[in-house]
Design a protein around this nucleic acid. Structure first.
Length: 940
RNA sequence: GCCGAGAUGGUGGAAUAGGUAGACACGCAAGACUUAAAAUCUUGUGGACGCAAGUCCGUGCGGGUUCGAUUCCCGCUCUUGGUACCA
C-alpha cells in the first residue's frame, strides 16, 4: 500500500477485533487482574461529542497497555439508561422511553466503535434492563431489611434490632442516623402486636418512608435531590424548585457519615474530590444544650459549635418549621408570625438564595432561659435557620457570629461582648471568631478558644444542661421520584404499612402506562398502570428510584453480567475485588461518587464485597469545552457584520457594541482555522438571513468571508459549537483522533476543542507509515541488525512511555513517539527489530495502524497479544557527558567529560579550560559545584 | 465568604528528585520540488539590541531561601471548579 489509508485499515481491524472477540476478558487465568472503569454514560439523543471520548481514550490506552504488560484486564462499558431526558421526550411525543433509549444506545455504540475501543462488549449492561434492575431492587430490599447498629458500627439484619427490643427495649440502643424519640422498655415492646412492632421498626431501617421536606419541581412533576438543584432551579431544564413536605423513601446515608469521611484516607483520589465530599458530609464538633422555656417544662434544644460563647447569647432563632412553634407563639404575635411563615414558604429556593443578604425574622413573644446564668432570652423565628440541620434552633451570639450580629443589629437586639483582644471586634474586617480571651463569662473568663470550649462542654455536661456532640451536614438521601422511567420500588402497602416484595418476585417489571405524566390527582405515572397490585391485591408503590440508584453499584455487575441468580457471584468478586482505576468527570463528586461509596459500604457490611472502598484510584478528566463562533447583526436593521469590523461599524453609525447588536452563533464546523466563514456557507446556514446586507472581508483565496468572535463555552447544540467525533474520524482517522485528544494536554485539565493542531498528529502517522513503505508502496523494512544508536532511541522511548503511562500522563507519550520517529528517520532506520518494538509500545495509542503494520512485518496474531518490550538500561549508557558550565548560575558554555570521571577531577580540570579563562577574568573562583553528570556551576 | 486547581513564546503544551526554560506540535517566514496549487521535504522562529560574534531581559506580580528556583517558603493579582444563611 503506497498511502496510509486510515479508513480502510481502521474498518478492517475493528471488524477483526469484534469477529475474533480479541478483547473478551476471562475470569479464569493465572494473570494478575486489572480493572479499569469508565463512568458509564447516559445515552442522550445528541450522541457523543468530541469531549466524551477523552476519558474513554485514556482508559483504553491504559487497558491496552496493561494487557501488553501481562495483566488480565477488565475494561467494560454500559449505559446509565434510566433518566429524565428520555422521559421528557416521552411526555412530549408519547413514545415509550425504552424505544428512545434503545435508539440512542445504538447510536452511542456506533460512535464508540468508530474510535476503536477495546471494551469487552459481551459484558455490556444497561440499568434499565430488568435483568439488571432486578438487583438494584434486591439491594433496596436489603437496605429495608437492615438497620445500623452504632455499637458494632455496621448494618445488621432487622432481626437483631427486634432481639434488642425484646431484651432491653430501647435501653442502651445506639442506632446510626437515628435519634430515638420514643423510648420504651422490653415489657412495653412485648405487649405490642406484631403489626405495631413492625410499624416501630420502620423508622429504624436503612430504607425508610418519612414525611420529608423536598425540592419539588412542578414543571418536571417530581422531587429532586439537593445536588439535582443548582441555584434554586432544576439542573435539568432549569425549572423553579420549591420546598414541600411529602412522604418519601429515604436512604439512611447519615448512618455512614463517619465511615464515608474516614475511609477517604484509604483511596487515591484527588484532594479536591475528597475535600468536596468532606465538606458535603460536613462534620462539626460542638455541644447540644437545652434551654428551658420560660413558664414551661419544655426544653429548647440547640446545637452549637461555640459553647464557649454561651454567655454572649442574646436571642434564640428557630426555623419557620420548628415543631414547638405553636407553644412558642404568643397570642399577640400570632398574626405577624403567620404572615411571616406564609411568606417564607411561598419563596422559592431561588429567591431565598438571591436574597441571602436580606435579613428577615419575627419575634414569637416567648422567652427561654440561659441555663448557665438564668438570663431571659427572646425567641425569634428566622428563615436563616434551616430545619434540616442541627435541631432547627440556634443560640445566637451577635458578638462572635457575623450573621447573628447582622440580625441583632437589624432588630436592635442586645450584643454582649464575650471576647477580648486583637481581632475580636466583629465590626472590623480582620475579625477572627477564634481570637482573643473570654470575658463576661463567669468561669470561662480568661480562657482562650480551645480551653474555653473544653471547659464549657465539661460544665454543661456535668450540670446536665446538655452534652458534647458531633453534628453532620449530610442528610439522608431522598430516594423517591414521581417519575416513570426509573426502577420501580419493590414495595407494596398493607394497612397503609409498606412491605417489600419477596426476593423471588423480582424483578418488579416497570409496567406499561397510557401516558407518562402524573395522574390528574397528582399521583406519579405508575398510578396509571392497570392492576398495579400484588397477587394478593395489595397496592404497589408508585414512586420510582432516582437516577443514581443503578449507578451506585453497576461496576460490580460487569464482573458477572449474565448471572440471573445473584447480583454477582462471590468467586468473581473475590477475584476482581475492586476497581483499580476509575475515570470520570469531577461533577459527580458529591452525587454518584458518594452514593456509590455508601452502597458499597452497606454491601461490605453484608459481607458481599471484600474491600472497604471500591475504587482505589480515581482520575477526573477535564471538560472539553466548545469554541463558539459569533458574528453580529444590527438589531434594528438587516445588516450582518464581521466581528473584525464590528467596532468600526458601531463607531461610524454611533451605536453601542453591547446593546445595539445581536450575536449570531455560527456553526463551528463551517468556520475555518482563521475563524472565518464564507458568505456562501453563512447564507446556507442561516437561510433566513440570506437577503441581509453584509459587512464582510476578503480572504486570501478572494472569497467573501465573515470573521467570527470566539467564545469558550460548554458544548451544546444551541450554541452550534458541537464537534462530532465521527466527522473527525472521517477526515483524519480514529488513530489520529486518539493521539490528538491525548496530545491536547494533561487529562485532568479542561480545555477548549480546537481542530487546528490536529495536522501534527496526522502527519506523525503518515511519517510512521513511510518507515515501512516508500512512496511507491514498496515494503522497505529490513532484517539488518540494529546498531547502538537505534537501540538507544528505542529504549529511551520504551522507558519514557512506560513511566508516563504508569503515572497517568497520557499527553507526554505522544511527543515522545514523535521524537522517537524523528530520530529514527534521521538514522534512516527501517530495521524490523526496532520497528516492531515501536509498534507494540505505540499500539495502545494508535491500535489500528499498529495492527496493520504489525501484520505487514509478518505477524499473524493480533498485536494485542504481544508483550511490552523490556527496557534495558545498558543501551542508554553513555561514555561521555556534556556538562553545561555556568558562572553564578548563568550557562556560559559546555564541556565534555567521561561519565565515570570523578567530581574532584572535574573541579580541577574545569579551571584549565578556555571558558573558565574567559569568564573568571583571572580571579579565583569562590566555589565550584559539580553535580555528577548534571551541571557545573562556578561561583565567582 | 470558604475550600480546591491553575497562570510558561503568536497558540496547545514540555521540563518526573532544586540543576542547560520553551522539548514536541501548531502557526508563521524563507527555500526545494511543481506550469501552478496542494501534499511532501529542508532551514529558521521567546523578546529587545546587533551585520555578526554576542549581550541583556524572560515561566502572573512583589519579596525570601539557595552556588543555582517554572519547581521550595511568605505576601498579593487574575482565571477556573466546587460550595454557600450549616449555628
Amino acid at each position: 500500500m503506497a498511502e496510509y489509508q486510515f479508513r480502510k485499515i481502521e474498518q478492517k481491524w475493528q471488524k477483526y477485533w469484534a469477529e475474533n472477540q480479541i478483547f473478551k476478558t476471562s475470569d479464569q487465568t493465572e494473570k494478575p487482574k486489572y480493572y479499569i472503569l469508565d463512568m458509564f454514560p447516559y445515552p442522550s439523543g445528541a450522541g457523543l461529542h468530541v469531549g466524551h471520548p477523552l476519558g474513554y481514550i485514556a482508559t483504553d490506552i491504559l487497558a491496552r497497555y496493561k494487557r501488553l504488560k501481562g495483566f488480565n484486564v477488565l475494561h467494560p462499558m454500559g449505559y446509565d439508561a434510566f433518566g429524565l431526558p428520555a422521559e421528557q421526550y416521552a411526555i412530549q411525543t408519547g413514545q415509550h422511553p425504552a424505544i428512545t433509549t434503545e435508539k440512542n444506545i445504538a447510536r452511542y455504540r456506533e460512535q464508540l466503535d468508530n474510535i476503536g475501543f477495546s471494551y469487552d462488549w459481551s459484558r455490556e449492561i444497561r440499568t434499565s434492563n430488568p435483568d439488571f434492575y432486578k438487583f438494584t431492587q434486591w439491594i433496596f430490599i436489603q437496605l429495608f431489611n437492615h438497620w445500623y447498629n452504632k455499637k458494632s458500627d455496621k448494618a445488621e439484619p432487622i432481626s437483631t434490632l427486634f432481639a434488642h427490643f425484646e431484651q432491653y427495649g430501647t435501653e442502651s440502643l445506639s442506632v446510626g442516623g437515628v435519634e430515638i424519640e420514643k423510648h420504651f422498655s422490653a415489657n412495653d415492646w412485648k405487649s405490642l402486636s406484631e403489626e405495631e412492632k413492625y410499624k416501630i421498626s420502620l423508622s429504624f431501617r436503612l430504607a425508610y418512608l418519612a414525611p420529608t421536606t423536598v425540592n419539588w419541581c412542578a414543571e418536571l412533576g417530581t422531587v429532586l435531590a439537593n445536588e439535582e438543584v443548582k441555584d434554586g432551579v432544576s439542573e435539568r431544564g432549569g425549572f423553579p424548585v420549591v420546598k414541600k413536605e411529602m412522604p418519601q423513601w429515604n436512604l439512611r446515608i447519615t448512618a455512614y457519615s463517619e465511615r464515608l469521611l474516614n475511609d477517604l484516607s484509604l483511596v487515591d483520589w484527588s484532594e479536591s474530590i475528597k475535600d468536596q465530599q468532606k465538606n458535603w458530609i460536613g462534620k462539626s464538633k460542638g455541644c447540644e444544650i437545652n434551654f428551658p422555656l420560660e413558664g414551661s417544662t419544655q426544653m429548647m434544644k440547640v446545637f452549637t459549635t461555640r459553647p464557649d460563647t454561651i454567655f454572649g447569647v442574646t436571642y434564640m432563632a428557630i426555623c419557620p418549621e420548628y415543631d414547638l412553634i405553636d407553644i412558642l407563639v404568643k397570642e399577640s404575635q400570632k398574626k405577624e408570625v403567620e404572615k411571616y411563615i406564609h411568606a417564607t414558604s411561598q419563596r422559592s429556593e431561588r429567591e431565598r438564595m438571591s436574597n441571602v443578604k436580606t435579613i428577615s425574622g419575627v419575634f414569637t413573644g416567648s422567652y427561654c432561659i440561659n441555663p448557665l446564668n438564668n438570663e431571659k432570652i427572646p425567641i425569634w423565628i428566622a428563615d436563616y435557620v434551616l430545619a434540616g440541620y442541627g435541631t432547627g434552633a440556634v443560640m445566637a451570639v451577635p458578638s462572635s457570629d457575623i450573621r447573628d450580629y447582622q440580625f441583632a443589629k437589624h432588630f436592635h437586639l442586645p450584643i454582649i461582648q464575650v471576647l477580648q483582644g486583637a481581632k475580636t471586634d466583629i465590626t472590623q474586617p480582620d475579625f477572627d471568631p477564634k481570637a482573643g480571651k473570654i470575658i463576661n463569662s463567669d468561669f470561662l473568663n480568661g480562657l482562650t478558644y480551645q480551653a474555653a470550649m473544653d471547659k464549657a462542654i465539661e460544665v454543661i455536661d456535668t450540670k446536665k444542661f446538655g452534652k458534647g456532640k458531633v453534628n453532620f451536614k449530610i442528610r439522608d438521601s431522598i430516594f423517591s421520584r414521581q417519575r416513570y422511567w426509573g426502577e420501580p420500588i419493590p414495595v407494596y402497602f398493607k394497612n397503609d404499612l409498606p412491605y417489600t416484595l419477596p426476593e423471588s418476585e423480582l424483578p418488579l417489571i416497570l409496567p406499561a402506562v397510557d401516558k407518562y405524566k402524573p395522574t390528574e390527582t397528582g399521583e406519579p405515572p405508575l398510578a396509571r398502570a392497570k392492576n398495579w397490585k400484588t397477587k394478593e391485591g395489595h397496592k404497589l408503590e408508585t414512586n420510582t428510584m432516582p437516577g443514581w440508584a443503578g449507578s451506585s453499584w453497576y461496576f460490580y455487575r460487569y464482573l458477572d453480567p449474565k448471572n440471573a441468580e445473584e447480583w454477582v457471584s462471590q468467586d468473581k468478586i473475590n477475584y476482581w475485588k475492586e476497581v483499580d482505576v476509575y475515570l470520570g468527570g469531577a461533577e459527580h463528586a458529591t452525587g454518584h461518587l458518594l452514593y456509590s461509596r455508601f452502597w458499597h459500604k452497606f454491601l461490605f457490611d453484608l459481607g458481599k464485597v471484600p474491600v472497604k472502598e471500591y475504587a482505589a484510584k480515581l482520575i477526573n478528566q477535564g471538560m472539553i469545552q466548545g469554541r463558539s463562533c459569533l458574528v453580529f447583526k444590527e438589531r434594528n436593521s438587516n445588516i450582518v457584520i464581521c466581528y473584525q469590523q464590528l467596532e468600526a461599524y458601531a463607531k461610524e453609525n454611533v451605536l453601542h457594541t453591547e446593546t445595539d447588536f445581536q450575536a449570531i452563533y455560527v456553526d463551528v464546523n463551517l468556520v475555518d482555522s482563521n475563524g472565518q466563514i464564507t458568505l456562501k456557507d453563512f447564507k446556507n446556514f442561516r437561510s433566513d438571513l440570506k437577503d441581509a446586507k453584509f459587512e464582510f472581508s476578503i480572504n486570501a483565496k478572494g472569497e467573501q468571508v465573515l470573521t467570527c468572535q470566539y467564545l469558550v463555552e460548554k458544548m451544546s447544540k444551541s450554541k452550534y459549537n458541537v464537534v462530532n467525533p465521527d466527522d473527525v474520524v472521517e477526515k483524519y482517522g480514529a488513530d489520529t483522533l486518539r493521539l490528538y485528544e491525548m496530545f491536547l494536554g494533561p487529562l485532568e485539565q479542561s480545555k477548549p476543542w480546537n481542530t487546528n493542531n490536529i495536522d501534527g498528529t496526522s502527519r506523525f502517522l503518515r511519517r510512521l507509515w513511510r518507515l515501512f513503505f516508500d512512496e511507491s508502496g514498496n515494503f522497505v523494512v529490513t532484517n539488518n541488525e540494529a546498531n547502538a544508536a537505534e537501540l538507544k532511541v528505542l529504549h529511551k522511548t520504551i522507558k519514557r512511555i512506560e513511566e508516563d503511562i504508569e503515572r497517568y500522563s497520557f499527553n507526554t507519550p505522544v511527543s515522545t513517539f514523535m521524537v522517537c520517529l524523528n530520530e529514527l528517520i534521521d538514522l534512516k532506520c527501517h530495521k524490523k527489530d526496532i520497528l516492531e518494538n515501536l509498534l507494540i509500545i505505540l499500539s495502545p495509542y494508535s491500535p489500528h495502524i499498529a495492527e496493520e503494520l504489525w501484520q505487514a512485518i509478518g505477524h499473524t496474531k493480533s498485536i494485542s497479544y504481544a508483550t511490552f518490550p523490556k527496557f534495558e538500561e545498558k543501551y542508554l549508557s553513555e561514555s561521555e557527558f556534556e556538562y553545561p558550565v555556568s558562572f553564578n548560575g548563568k550557562v556560559r558554555g559546555k564541556q565534555k567529560y567521561a561519565t565515570d570521571y570523578s567530581v574532584a577531577q572535574i573541579e580541577k580540570e574545569i579551571q584549565e579550560t578556555e571558558i573558565y579563562a574567559k569568564w573568571s577574568e583571572g580571579k579565583p573562583a569562590k566555589k565550584i559545584i559539580v553535580v555528577h553528570n548534571k551541571i557545573i556551576n562556578i561561583v565567582m
